[in-house]
Design a protein around this nucleic acid. Structure first.
Length: 862
RNA sequence: GCCGAAAUGGCGGAACUGGUAGACGCACUGGACUCAAAAUCCAGCGGGACUUAAAUCCCGUAAGGGUUCGACUCCCUUUUUCGGCACCA
């Protein structure tokens, strides 16, 4: 009987289903003393295209670990689900005039069938779908928890809003505003990234992807929901240190959070149009250069611009702001390689030396970072210098590099800085800086910081690049916000008992055309009445972004059918954190920042018991087309896993994808390559079964293996175990050891049953179907999944003999086979009496001899 | 520009902590089996010199330099590729 992978794979997939082989053990009984292991894949967005070969790569790796851990005696949870809200389903549904729910169901069915055909060991009873009402009820519920919380700065954690102290003597409306200004979810008129092509806003994190696709993204002020993720910036940064994540991902997140230490400084405004004293606050990382500040710049959107602009400057300022406004961020950065700006007519007073310096606006200053205003220090900041030269502003040198020592050098440096030929932005020593003169940069920063705090003109602060998370989208196919708005402009959250707030079932719907979500056009859904007061209200028509559902799905897997709470805290405590999380690196800043953020809020509120959700993270690399470039429909180089499975079987595909190289590497597909792995599995098949009779081959005996055979097995056990265990996800080497063992077994006249059985166990996490089949053929009853992983014994690992090399001056000149652990002095004698070595060292002086047991002898001569 | 990762045969990739570079697979070459082919099995396979052959020698891990008895591995400089960020004050 030939190796009929199609039949075998079908048979075992059915067996696993029927016998619930991969059912998650119940930990909560307390009876289970086995350690837990949570192996998680990033759940897919079920698109209409179905799986591509890139999907199974990471999934196979996780599956290997999950199967291995079960055999190692762990209680394993290995679930799968669907991240099914999203734009592409909505767009398809809109085009075809069907409800996205129907389209989603179609896509899910296809994905599921494809995943099952690869033989992953998922516990399908825990399948979840973010678009299921029973699921998004809890997404909405968590949103309510976030909405009803504030961040206690003193304790550094989120707390229920009911614990927030409301100042005395506020009117009802003021109380309402006060609470809302403290909530972790808040509605605000903010400059957003509006994408006209998609008719929706995008978060900062999402912009690059859409721009790459050729969509336009512009700045626009809109009233939107935001989540106060910035409150968690510091904790998210610090906790990164303890995670077993790839360094580049940690670095990416650190950059994204973008912490910088500095100071905020207050400059008094001197303006003819301003009646009362006002201050401009600037943020700088170099407060020590304050004596070199020769002007102040406000972002064009800065609140004070209107107030300080005099009539004679108004036209120019207004025009400049208008031009800046319509530019997208991208245009703003690209076009302003030539810096531009306008004088407001007002001046500011430098708090340390009383100098009056002009206030300008320029679009190279961003409203959304720091305080939206800077002090221009053109002597020591390249951007400021470029701007100052363009507009002819004064440049004052205030820091001198250490290398500049002599008076003559100092004169030249000062001269060149003033005329704009030199811009030194590094650390050095303060000059022209009053009481800071002569101090090193770090001393000067410390001194100025205490000076400004003492005199109330500023304070040490920390600034982040991370912005609050823009959390609403103008879409239909997303979680509706459990919020209603009243006619007076106030709003309130629904009660938990009113959840889920479901999406309306409608035949067709269109974009509203006004920049609102399609939900706004569905009168019967939008108009409602407040259950408590009976007041007329209008539902929030925005929906949550796609990332909402994936922020907490790993928790729902632990308790997927619970309708009392999103996840039983007991179960959370037992199963979390995720021990291994595999997915693509494209999620390193989006999903992984958002999910950590939600988990931390839930932690603060007492619903979960750990501070981080994902202990170990691993990113699989991309699989390129056979031509070495990214797979894409337009290139026609897409490999469909269905075709691969039909031709070679799922086991060959799994094995090949792992054999291609280290998991994190980007590597091209190769049809010839998978043929090689298919050949290997055929060799394994014929090693065990007689192709004519279909029975176990007659040279497989029940004898006790000889030492040589034992050594072969134990060495393979050691290498495969270590490769799976060490966490590098380099399964290519594990597979190559299995190949070596097969090659060796082919050379043997007879093989002991125990040897071949152990080999099959070692191969089974990689290619489970064929191994189950052979396991059964060898007369075993239960699934191979329930067998213990073999152990290796040190006594069978060590070699009998080794080849030792003899070197002269570091060059290999001879080799010799010696007993393992031959003493060093014996090795030396061997080397010194070796014919070839003798010839080379004859008549020369031996300076020293370096000997390493079992490795080499190096004779150094002159 | 900044940050990060990487560069090894014709190709994908191995090489523990500095100690035999090229495991394993693909491709290729030769042989066996066959009427023939496919499949399968066996053998060879970094480059070069010399040689009938064996043997021997030289070069070789992006490039150049350094440390060391010894470097794919450590240090410095450069180049290239990939990923990310990009006026973040």
């Amino acid at each position: 009987m030939k190796y009929d992978f199609t039949e075998i794979e079908k048979k075992w997939q059915k067996y696993w289903d029927d016998n619930k082989t991969f059912k998650t053990p119940d930990l909560s009984s307390g009876k289970n003393i086995k350690p837990k292991y949570y192996a998680l894949d990033m759940f897919p967005y079920p698109s209409g295209d179905g799986l591509h070969v890139g999907h199974p790569e990471g999934y196979t790796a996780t599956d290997i670990i999950a199967r291995y851990k079960r055999m190692k005696g762990f209680s394993v949870i290995h679930p799968m689900g669907w991240d099914a809200f999203g734009l592409s389903t909505e767009q398809y549904a809109m085009k075809m005039g069907i409800h996205p729910k129907i389209r989603t169901a179609e896509c899910v069915a296809r994905f599921k069938q494809q995943l099952k055909a690869i033989g992953f060991s998922y516990d399908w009873e825990r399948e979840i779908n973010t678009t299921d009402e029973k699921y998004y009820k809890w997404t909405q519920w968590i949103f309510l928890k976030i909405f009803n919380s504030y961040y206690d700065e003193a304790e550094g954690r989120a707390k229920p809003i009911t614990e927030l102290k409301i100042p005395e003597g506020l009117s009802e409306r003021e109380k309402f505003d006060f609470l809302n200004s403290n909530r972790l979810a808040y509605l605000a008129e903010v400059p957003v990234n509006w994408c006209p092509d998609l008719a929706t806003v995008l978060s900062n994190e999402e912009v690059p992807e859409q721009v790459e696709k050729g969509y336009k993204v512009i700045r626009r002020n809109m009233k939107q929901w935001n989540l106060r993720i910035t409150k968690y910036a510091d904790r998210m940064l610090k906790d990164l240190d303890f995670l077993d994540w790839p360094n580049n991902i940690k670095e990416l997140q650190r950059n994204w959070i973008g912490r910088s230490e500095g100071a905020s400084l207050k400059f008094r405004i001197k303006s003819t149009v301003l009646k009362e004293d006002k201050f401009i606050e600037v943020f700088t990382t170099r407060p020590d250069t304050i004596f070199g500040a020769t002007y102040i710049i406000l972002a064009p959107e800065h609140k004070l611009v209107n107030e300080i602009t005099g009539a004679e400057n108004e036209e120019r300022i207004t025009n400049y702001r208008k031009t800046a406004e319509i530019k997208s961020d991208l245009e703003r950065t690209e076009l302003s390689k030539e810096k531009t700006g306008e004088f407001t007519g007002a001046f500011a007073v430098n708090p340390v030396n009383g100098a009056e310096i002009p206030i300008l606006i320029a679009d190279y200053v961003l409203a959304s970072y720091g305080t939206g205003a800077i002090m221009g220090v053109p002597g020591h900041d390249e951007r400021d210098q470029e701007f100052a030269r363009k507009l002819g502003l004064e440049i004052v040198p205030v820091v001198i590099p250490q290398e500049v020592k002599t008076e003559e050098e100092k004169r030249i440096f000062t001269e060149n800085t003033k005329n704009g030929e030199v811009c030194f932005s590094g650390e050095g020593f303060a000059i022209n800086s009053g009481f800071l003169d002569g101090m090193s940069t770090s001393e000067a920063i410390e001194e100025i910081n205490s000076h400004i705090e003492k005199n109330g003109i500023g304070k040490k602060t920390v600034s982040y690049k991370l912005r609050d998370w823009l959390f609403s989208r103008q879409r239909f196919w997303g979680e509706p916000f459990p919020i209603i708005h009243f006619e007076d402009g106030t709003f309130k959250a629904l009660d938990e008992s009113e959840l889920p707030l479901t999406l309306p079932d409608i035949d067709s719907y269109k974009q509203s055309g006004t920049g609102e979500s399609p939900l706004a056009t569905i009168e019967s859904w939008v108009n409602t009445v407040d259950k408590e007061s009976g007041r007329k209200a209008r539902r929030e028509t925005n929906t949550m972004p796609q990332w909402a559902g994936s922020c907490w799905y790993y928790l729902r897997f632990l308790d997927p059918h619970n309708d009392k709470i999103f996840c039983d805290p007991e179960k959370e405590k037992l199963w979390m954190p995720v021990d291994l999380y595999i997915g693509g690196s494209e999620h390193s800043v989006l999903h992984l920042i958002y999910a950590r953020f939600w988990y931390k809020i839930l932690y603060d509120l007492g619903y979960v018991s750990h501070t981080e959700p994902f202990k170990k993270l691993f990113n699989q690399g991309m699989i390129l087309g056979e031509d070495g470039v990214k797979m894409s429909k337009s290139r026609g180089n897409v490999i469909n896993p269905d075709d691969v499975i039909r031709e070679f079987g799922a086991d060959s595909m799994r094995l090949f994808e792992m054999f291609m190289g280290p998991l994190e590497a980007t590597k091209p597909w190769s049809t010839k390559g998978i043929e090689g792995l298919s050949r290997f599995l055929n060799r394994v098949w014929r090693l065990v079964t007689d192709e004519n009779t279909g029975l176990v081959k007659s040279n497989i005996t029940n004898e006790i293996p000889e030492l040589k055979e034992k050594k072969l097995l134990h060495k393979t056990v050691k290498k495969v175990t270590e490769d799976i265990e060490d966490g590098d996800m380099k399964f290519n080497t594990a597979i190559s050891y299995l190949m070596v063992m097969v090659n060796e077994m082919y050379k043997m006249e007879k093989i002991c049953r125990s040897t071949i059985e152990n080999f099959i166990i070692l191969l089974s996490p990689f290619s489970p179907h064929i191994c189950e089949e052979l396991w059964e053929k060898l007369g075993n009853k239960n699934s191979i999944q329930f067998v213990s992983w073999p152990l290796f014994e040190q006594q069978y690992i060590k070699e009998d003999s080794v080849t030792v090399v003899f070197q002269v001056n570091g060059k290999i000149r001879a080799k010799m086979e010696v007993d393992y652990d031959t003493a060093e002095d014996v090795l030396e004698d061997h080397a010194l009496y070796n014919e070839k070595i003798l010839k080379l060292i004859m008549g020369k002086q031996i300076i020293k001899v370096i000997t390493i047991k079992n490795k080499m002898v190096n004779i150094v001569v002159k």
